[in-house]
Design a protein around this nucleic acid. Structure first.
Length: 876
DNA sequence: GTCTTCACG
DNA sequence: ACGTACGTGAAGACC
């Protein structure tokens, strides 16, 4: 058996070292991270360099130790641990646990004693021992088999204390280190020693006499001096100090060396802690290392022709794309498999094969795919209508846990313990270095993805079934992917000429406002730069600073609105901002996205991204087209039907989230209000303000009630409401209190859902979508509060997402059944946008609300409003 | 790449 | 005492 190598770390000492060696870093949540970071860096380095077979981190247990029995003032007068450091200890423990390193502390004993005891045991067993600390006391443990590493300035710079090194440095043996301490004392531990004796004197004395005991035996013969007087005077102190400095190597520890085996970190757990602490550089580095791991060999056959014999009834299919823009990018290669041997089909071979096209389009041939919508969309560009999608790894993983990151097969596979596939970054590189490798490497990579898919289908489906989420995945997300694919491929027509004219008018206005701003400021500057703008407003013009950001003055709209009366320039800046946003994002940005071949934009709906189950939309984002202000709303005039004689038809759920809330909490007042079709904000205002007649509710009361309702959905907090309404926090708290009094069912729901989250670690939606909340039991107030609000919000927002997704599937079926030409084009969270021949509008007005309102039956009715017009603007 | 701001539900 | 409303994406500035 190879020799054991034991690494013993002094947890407290190293945490202190890291804390004081690094500047005060904090992460996004405001937690200090310098000690955690320094500790991690040190661990990484030492483990990498030493490759230990056993490891332990020892901590000091509490305030009192056995040393206090002989000397009450031991470690007295110490500065209290800074709170910035104290708050990091829980994370340091988490880090150690994630590394799968044993940690230990023992009542009445210090870390030194645990380390000393284990070092002796291990040495006796023939192991090599390395001790790491910031405290030189430990060097007394140095021997032929025990090396003590002491951190020098910084954290990763260490000095290695072997007996030889100690001899060279001090001219002493390791055991004499204790004697040295006894004579010179230690200010940090409040060990007195002999006053007037420092390191130099102590070393000189020990070289001459050997030990404290020998020195005092011979002291009579010492020639009279000031030093001799001091030594005689403080003999007791010297003996006591030596005793205090002696590390006890027979501590009654309850662990044995066998408990300390070290076999590497739990990478998932470690990444999770790094994520929590915001160690981005470490996360990136680890991705590279862990994914560049050794791969098992695979068998692959690169074919020059596709035959029907190669294509089975059930196969994993992977179409590798150049990038995520599947509406415009190229394919790089294709692989299929139904076992360990993959068939790699070069793109040009695949595209000219009728057999392959027939197989892809055959619904009875089942395919396991990683992103079926992307595959559907790119094949559609080559006139291939993908059918028979039986498994989608991207969607299945997302349902198991929406927090699972990325669409890279390697990352997803790793979540389920499969590692025989490389990360894209490893194969292609990233950023400017991105490049397609030679065919052999590429074929291997793509084939591995297909093989991974083949393996993961059963693994992930089992997980879904265990979690009772298979139906959500199979009956909702999977069919929805195809519908979204159709919507994206269809696209929506944009009248570029309208955008162009708007842009020109906008530019004229912007130029005028720009001039006014420069005039009022007395100089030209970049209005788009919050930094430069801050200087003008707050330094030059002397406006009051109401809010600051991390980096300087805040110039956000809510701040500027409060400053409007202070200076004329403010209004101009607000106007400029509004128009500049329209110009850059919606006129210029949108125009760039219009495809030349069909005059349409083809967004991509991200189906496996949000934490709650909603969709998101990119390139362009069609879920945030302006509507609230008239100037912006006009952008919608550019969204038009694709054919002459067609119109746009829009239908949206009214108050869907509050209805979901009513359903889930079963609050009688809320349920009744919806059943009776009351205006919910007015109803809320009546209860919050104690008014019995709806006519007595003023516009302002309703506005306040509306804000309170939003607050309830978001996970209420008095502070948030006070910001939103610009009222004192106390006032906001009263509104909330009043609301919860009036709606006890809501109060009960909020309490229960947080309790559920604490118990289960996740919350669920109506269709059993999960959101995990790892911070729900955190000792950090911010993290915990955020998790609590999320626990309240996620089931509401997520259930609303479930409902509209179900409606989209039902709607797709219904349109086919009715034999309509109408097409669903967009989804905007609570709204569906169709285009249809004008003559179908009458039917749509009947069936769209019917289908949407009956998508999922709740304890309250769902209500849908609808309209149509010759542009999106007119469908209001 | 990160920060700030602002568009939407 | 703490310090925040929930969920997104895009653009521009600045490092």
């Amino acid at each position: 058996m190879a020799k054991e190598k034991l690494l013993l770390l002094d947890g407290n000492s190293l945490a202190y070292r890291a804390f004081f060696a690094l500047p005060p870093l904090t992460n996004d949540s405001g937690i200090h991270t310098n000690a955690s970071y320094g500790f991690t860096m040190m661990l990484q380095k030492i483990v990498e360099e030493e490759q230990p077979t056993q490891m332990l981190v020892a901590f000091d247990a509490g305030k009192t130790t056995f040393r206090h029995e002989s000397f009450g003032e031991y470690k007295g007068g110490r500065q209290k641990t800074p709170p910035e450091l104290s708050e990091q200890f829980p994370y340091i423990r988490k880090l150690i646990d994630a590394y799968n390193i044993k940690r230990y502390e023992l009542d009445l004993y210090e870390a030194d004693d645990i380390i000393g005891t284990l070092a002796k045991q291990a040495e006796a067993g023939g192991s090599e021992v390395i001790i790491v600390s910031g405290d030189k006391d430990l060097t007394q443990l140095s021997s032929d088999n025990v090396t003590v590493y002491i951190t020098r300035k910084g954290i990763t710079d260490i000095e290695k204390y072997t007996p030889a090194h100690i001899e060279e440095k001090y001219g002493l043996t390791p055991a004499q280190i204790i004697d040295m301490k006894g004579l010179m004392g230690d200010a940090s531990d409040n060990i007195p020693g002999v006053p007037g004796v420092g390191e130099k004197t102590a070393i000189k004395l020990l070289k001459e006499y050997g030990s404290v005991e020998a020195l005092y035996e011979a002291i009579d013969g010492m020639k009279a001096s000031k030093m001799k007087e001091k030594l005689v005077e403080n003999e007791d102190s010297a003996h006591l100090s030596k005793k205090l400095a002696t590390i006890f190597t027979e501590a009654p520890i309850e662990i044995t060396l066998d408990d300390l085996a070290y076999a590497g970190p739990n990478e998932d757990a470690l990444l999770a802690v790094w994520q929590e602490l915001g160690f981005k550089s470490l996360i990136e580095k680890s991705d590279m290392q862990s994914t560049a791991q050794e791969q098992e060999d695979i068998q692959l056959n690169i074919v020059a022709d596709v035959t029907t014999a190669m294509l089975k009834d059930t196969m994993a299919l992977h179409v590798e794309l150049e990038n995520e823009h599947y509406h415009s990018c190229d394919m790089l290669g294709i692989a299929v498999t139904n076992g360990e041997d993959a068939t790699y089909i070069p793109v040009e071979i695949a595209l000219k094969s009728d057999a392959f096209k027939a197989w892809l389009e055959d619904a009875s041939k089942k395919k396991y795919i990683v992103d079926s919508k992307a595959t559907q969309a790119i094949l559609a560009r080559y006139d291939i209508q993908l059918a028979g999608v039986a498994f989608d790894l991207l969607l299945a993983s997302y349902i198991v846990n929406p927090a699972i990151s990325g669409d890279d097969v390697a990352a997803l596979a790793k979540e389920f313990g499969y590692t025989n596939v490389q990360a894209n970054e490893v194969v292609y590189g990233k950023g400017a270095k991105w490049t397609v490798p030679e065919t052999g490497v590429l074929a291997d990579h793509i084939s591995r993805k297909a093989i991974a898919l083949w393996h993961l289908q059963s693994v992930v489906e089992k997980k879904l079934k265990d979690n009772e989420q298979y139906d959500l995945y199979h009956d909702l997300e999977l069919p929805l992917a195809e519908i979204l694919g159709k919507m994206e491929i269809e696209g929506i027509s944009v009248d570029v000429e309208i955008l162009k004219q708007m842009g020109e008018a906008l530019q004229e206005k912007l130029t005028v406002i720009e001039q006014s701003i420069y005039e009022l400021a007395g100089e030209e500057f970049n209005i788009n730069s919050p930094k430069q703008l801050g200087v003008i407003l707050f330094d030059k013009l002397g406006l009051p600073v109401l809010k600051k950001t991390k980096t300087g003055y805040s110039t956000a709209a809510d701040v500027l609105e409060k400053l409007q009366s202070e200076h004329d320039i403010v209004k101009h800046i607000l106007d400029y901002r509004q128009l500049a946003k329209l110009q850059s994002t919606y006129i210029e940005g949108l125009t760039k996205e219009v495809h030349a071949k069909d005059g349409k934009v083809h967004t991509r709906f991200q189906q496996a991204l949000t934490a709650t189950g909603r969709l998101s939309s990119t390139d362009p984002n069609l879920q945030n087209i302006p509507i609230r202000l008239e100037e912006g709303r006009k952008i919608r005039q550019a969204f038009v039907p694709s054919k002459e004689g067609w119109v746009l038809f829009a239908a949206d759920y009214s108050q869907i989230e509050l209805r979901v809330l009513a359903h889930m909490c079963q609050d009688p007042v809320l349920v009744e209000a919806f059943k009776e079709g009351m205006d919910i904000h007015t109803r809320t205002a009546m209860d919050v303000f104690g008014v019995t007649n709806p006519d007595e509710v003023t516009a302002n009361m309703r506005r306040t009630a509306k804000a309170v309702n939003f607050g309830i959905i978001y996970g209420i907090s008095d502070y948030g409401l006070s910001q939103n309404l610009d009222i004192p926090r106390k006032k906001a708290a009263e509104f909330i209190e009043s609301y919860l009094q009036s709606f006890p069912g809501v109060k009960g729901y909020m309490e229960n859902i947080v309790a559920d989250a604490r118990r289960d670690g996740f919350v669920t939606t109506i269709l059993n979508r999960r959101r995990y909340l790892p911070d729900i039991n955190s000792s950090n107030f911010n993290l915990r509060s955020f998790a609590e609000r999320t626990a309240m919000n996620a089931p509401i927002q997520g259930s609303a997402a479930d409902i509209i997704k179900k409606a989209m599937i039902d709607m797709d079926i219904r349109l086919q059944k009715e034999g309509l030409q109408a097409k669903l084009l967009l989804q905007v969270h609570d709204e569906l946008i169709f285009e249809a021949p004008a003559e179908e509008i009458e039917i749509l007005e009947r069936i769209v609300p019917e289908v949407m309102e009956s998508a999922i039956e709740l304890a309250v009715p769902l209500k849908v409003d609808y309209s149509h017009g010759h542009s999106w603007y007119d469908a209001k």
